[in-house]
């Protein structure tokens, strides 16, 4: 059974196909991922999306709870992200639930 995970990319306003002229401001397109809503998403938004895209996370594929926990901890240990203990648990639960592999 295929899960209905429909991810639709939307273009941000702006001339994305314009030629880049070096020495002028370059605009990298913004991708709006269709994110699975659920408990914990507010914490994901506050802690994760401030630094990187949603695609950067979910393109790691469905992963185990342990994987998501370790990734979250890596952000604290190595990238110095100010994520609280409570949020670590909530974020781990969110990914295990929506982007987990059942393990």
């Amino acid at each position: 059974m295929i899960k209905k995970v429909i991810l639709i990319a939307l273009l941000s306003a702006g001339a994305l196909f314009a030629q880049v002229k070096k020495g002028e401001n370059i605009e990298v397109p913004y991708i709006s991922y269709d994110i699975k809503m659920g408990e914990g998403f507010a914490q994901v938004q506050a802690n994760c999306l401030t630094c990187h895209s949603f695609g950067y996370m979910i393109n790691q594929g469905p992963q185990s709870r342990e994987h998501w926990y370790k990734k979250t901890m890596k952000m604290i240990t190595h990238f110095k992200a100010p994520i609280s203990k409570e949020d670590v648990e909530i974020i781990t639960n969110y990914f295990a639930e929506h982007y987990g592999n059942g393990k």
Binding site: I26, V28, I31, H52, S53, G55, Y56
Partner: peptide, 20 residues
């Protein structure tokens, strides 16, 4: 992707921030 990044044809796109 249907989205082309600067100086690129549309490519398989994983992330916009950072670009992959």
């Amino acid at each position: 992707s249907r989205i082309a990044f600067p100086e690129k044809k549309p490519l398989i796109t994983y992330s916009d921030r950072p670009p992959l």
